[in-house]
Simulated assay, not measured.
Amino acid sequence: MLYLIGLGVWNEKDISLRGVEFCKQADSVYCELYTAHWGGDLEKLEKMIGKKIRKLKRKDVEEESGKLLEEAKKKDVVLLVPGDPLIATTHVHLILEAKKANIPVEIVHSSSIYTTVARTGLQIYKFGKTGTIITPRKGYDSKGFYEIIRDNLSKGMHTLLLLDRDMGTRKGLEILERIENRKRRKILKGRRIVLCSRLSSEHERIVYGRMEDLRGKDLPEPGVIIIPGKLHFLEKEFLETLG
């Protein structure tokens, strides 16, 4: 049997009791930490579950997933995933492959960036499509997220912008402003936005203000930028408390 267990959004204390129980009962426990940032300590988690955790690389989960599935045919195998196990397409594909091989799959959900952004007071159901700000590199179009913002704003919806690995909010804002400055019709000038860093941790930071005033704010990764759409009066009141 294959178990996909979410580690939660921040550290080893975010895993559920149900997840810990499955880990203790499993024959093998693996983890992947490349699909999202995780601020936990694997050694502490190993002590919690009483088992060694083997860290997998991208190729182990994607290109060579057959080895993991072959083991799951005969044993109880756990794959620990940062955040929630069904956020990344990689894990959805793994589940489909397991089902094709008639391998039972158990999923244990956990907190992720898609739940913790509610900490801003913005209502989850009012978020539109998510965008990702990628570090510009040759051969990759990193401007797609700007059109996502434009489309969401036209519908009055909020936009969650994920940031590339090792990218703080200042770098993310620089890329955002660079693309905005190339556009004839500005959609972000004077608009108030939200910067979030290390949500659900003791180091959590949330800042609300005009984009021009926040460009010098370099909140550490993992972070996100939120472009609010049309605000309900309760959302507006909550955001004002963030300063």
Score class of each variant (00 low, 15 high):
Ser110Trp: 02
Gly50Ser: 10
Arg184Ser: 13
Lys99Ile: 00
Asp164Trp: 03
Glu71Ala: 05
Glu43Trp: 03
Glu212His: 07
Thr169Leu: 06
Glu174Lys: 14
Arg182Leu: 13
Gly216Cys: 02
Ser112Gly: 12
Gln123Ala: 06
His109Pro: 03
Arg198Asn: 03
Thr120Asp: 08
Arg165Cys: 05
Leu7Trp: 07
His158Met: 04
Ser142Met: 12
Pro136Lys: 08
Thr120Pro: 05
Gly209Pro: 09
Glu32Asp: 12
Glu71Ile: 03
Gly83Tyr: 05
Pro228Gln: 09
Ala101Cys: 15
Lys52Cys: 12
Ile133Asp: 00
Leu69Glu: 01
Gly144Pro: 00
Leu42Trp: 08
Gly40Phe: 10
Glu97Asp: 09
Lys13Ala: 08
Gly139Ser: 02
Ile179Leu: 13
Asp213Cys: 02
Arg58Pro: 14
Lys73Trp: 10
Ser28His: 13
Ile53Tyr: 13
Gly243Thr: 12
Thr120Val: 07
Ile134Glu: 00
Lys138Thr: 07
Glu43Gly: 11
Lys143Glu: 11
Gly83Gln: 10
Lys99Tyr: 04
Leu42Ala: 14
Gly6Gln: 14
Leu69Pro: 03
Gly168Glu: 15
Gly121Thr: 06
Gly229Tyr: 04
Leu231His: 15
Leu161Phe: 09
Gly190Tyr: 10
Ser200Arg: 01
Leu86Gln: 02
Met48Ile: 10
Leu214Asp: 05
Ala98Trp: 01
Leu2Gln: 03
Ala72Asp: 04
Gly19His: 00
Leu80Tyr: 07
Val224Met: 15
Met1Gly: 13
Glu46Arg: 03
Thr90Ile: 15
Gly144Ala: 04
Glu237Phe: 10
Ala88Lys: 02
Thr115Val: 08
Thr132Glu: 01
Arg185Asp: 14
Ser65Asn: 10
Val207Lys: 01
Thr90Leu: 12
Glu174Gly: 14
Lys186Ala: 03
Ser142Leu: 13
Val9Met: 01
